[in-house]
Design a protein around this nucleic acid. Sequence first.
RNA 1: GCGCCAGUGGCGGAAUGGUAGACGCGCUGGUCUUAGGAACCAGUGGGCAACCGUGGGGGUUCGAGUCCCUCCUGGCGCACCA
Length: 787
Amino acid sequence: MSKKYILEMFPYPSGNIHMGHVRNYVIGDICARYHKLKGDEVIHPMGWDAFGLPAENAAIQFKTHPQDWTLSNIKNMKDQLLKLNLDLDWDRELATCNEDYYRYQQELFIDLFNAGLAYKKDAIVNWDPVDQTVLANEQVIDGKGWRTGATVVKKNLSQWFFKITDYAEELLNDLDKLTLWPEKVKTMQKNWIGKSIGAEIKFKIAEKDRFLNIFTTRPDTIYGATFIAVSINHEIVSEILDKVSIEKIRKGFDEVNDDKEKIGIKLNIRCKHPILDKEIPVYIANFVLDNYGEGAIFGCPAHDERDFEFAKKYNLPIIKVIDCMDSELPYMGDGKLINSPLLNGLNKDKAIVEIIEYFIKSGTGREKINYKIRDWGVSRQRYWGCPIPVIYYEDGTYRVLDKSELPVVLPYDINLQDKGNALLNKESWRNIICPKTNKKAYRETDTLDTFVDSSWYYIRFLNNKIDKPFDPSQANEYLPVDKYIGGIEHAILHLLYSRFFMKALRDIYKLKIDEPFKQLFTQGMITHKTYKTTNNEWVMPIEVISKNGKLLRHKTNETIEEGPSEKMSKSKKNVVEPDEILENYGIDATRVFMISDSPPDRELEWTDEGIQSSKNLVNRVHRYFSEKKGDINLEIEKEIEKFVHNIEKNILNFSLNKCVADIYTLFNHLEKKNVYLYNDKLSKKILICLFPIVPKLSKSLNETLFKSDDFEKWPEIKTDLLIEDRIKLPIQIQGKLITTIDTKKGYSEKEILKSIYELDKIKNKMHNKKVTRIINVQDKIINIIVN
RNA sequence: GCGCCAGUGGCGGAAUGGUAGACGCGCUGGUCUUAGGAACCAGUGGGCAACCGUGGGGGUUCGAGUCCCUCCUGGCGCACCA
């Protein structure tokens, strides 16, 4: 018996299940039910990604408590999921906001800290001065706080980080092992990690006993360097200028209208060229990123677009060091080096190797691999999240708690209406006496990013009751998740964080697992036509009626314009509610529609015709099994065998739309032949294959026809029944189809040609022509080549 | 700008380099019905035809929707990443 861990991304309990969830979970459910029938040991859990900002917002808006709001949403959404008749392991259920989940996450935090993978450092954050809180990037709209409208300021705060950069190389390399992941997701992760190979070069500052480090992927162009540019946040800036001037410059940078426009402020220092006996100016430039490389660059205007633009604006020299013939500058391509005594005549790649060797010898630089990915900042100045198990002393030092001191329980009794972080305001919780030192101390009031919660939930599902985060031997046995199904919107963050967690936990707990998700399947979104009144007011599809070919709003008779199909969203009102659909069409028809109209990884357009025809199919299958007539022959058996084979193949490939086609094909055939199987044993086979897709119908038919409430194992394919002994053989002349002939498989070429030449269609085409070649792909095609 | 993916009937979509359009929706005609978002039967890429047809152009091959080159269009992702 082999294990199959099938997992759908767990939902955020926002209040209601939407159609996107339904599609996601139906896809997973079909896989899980199939594997169960196959006799596999299936793990198919469900839980709740229950911490997060919406709960706090709702609490403020509706004067409720985040916990009450969340738990009641979970209850409601669980009821909805139960109605979907999903075959889930509810005994594995977990919610990340419950103490019996997050206390183990606090243990993992301690593990990560002890392994050197969690650390604290200062970082710049978006600060809302009115609400006295940090805002996430997406909560800053046009530089203003989304709730207060106050101008957000950058603030330097001490924050916790996870050292994902330690794993950058492995996270990149192991993407190659993920053969069952969509290429698209892997590409996105690859770009996010952003590995680039280049060099770090040390520029001596002429006026100071100090160097400026820069990173470049083009050290070969060093002879063309005519300036240095640093980011406004570079430490050299604060060494030279006072705070007021820096802020003035920063403000100037911020006020640029065109964010591509390059501006620079010349500093009164110069850098020595590492090879040539000359000095080049140093600028603070708005286009130098402070969070990439060293936050400093050397400018080679002749061979870099941005440097070129900058040099033009500030009249800096442009020295050509790559022979690009008549090409206009800047020229970024390859070519022979010129004006570069040590490198002249070499091509780019060779020159890079040479110059790095020179840097190493002269102590002016070295080869450097740089990654775009930065360490994961996990501190959130928010109440509704997992408390970080750290305490601070009055002298500013801190201590990460021992596991025996856990859990740090999130206090229930808080006031969210006050400004700022509710935990910071909750002094009775925050202020403690350290039990180890008896010193006054206060708790860390930041909570963990909710992406931490979802980075290991798939491990906790293996045993949600064990009194430690997880059991390593169990993890080794049941991980990785065999099929992970969810939306592409998590292509980077969640999936990358989870991969990092898996690797970190592997190293801490000596696991044998490198990757959390063996196969990733990203389902497409559900779209729906949009409807608007002439006043541009969005209208729900259910309100729209068609009258004499015109669309009208049911109640008011307003004219309605139909817009393009877009992702279902509340704001555009183009949603359909799962509860209503289930009520009107039933669960099986809903399941069928979720998979029928397009491949599961593409978008699915919701249409009334679509759901109705799914309903019709379910009814038709039901009706089919209401009588027994016709003669069962070998051909019928073969057809059913083919059906079993196709359904199986298509479920395994996630080609679920083709499963629906298989069902139509089978019943079209049976009805055409006027064979109604009723309780013949062949019906059993069909019902088993239908079970993953339409479980309710299949189960009820099984009860009616066979008085059984259980299914046998998935049928073994009788391969001999899949073999056709007669085939339709296409006959081509010059590669063009002329006709097809009905013949036995395994015909002899000589004999079949004889009969082919007798055919009128062929005779006509061959008139006056000589056969020069025969291509016979046995049992597939015959192609006659004539002169 | 860079990267990735995709362009097939009226529509959604099928096709290990080997009969393009499976299957469904829609549509047309018919049957049954008091009625039907029901069911059933027949038809449905274009063209009267020879033939022509998988975004355009070229190539490889006996044979291309499929492989290669190139261009166009659309979608997604990243975006001053040095």
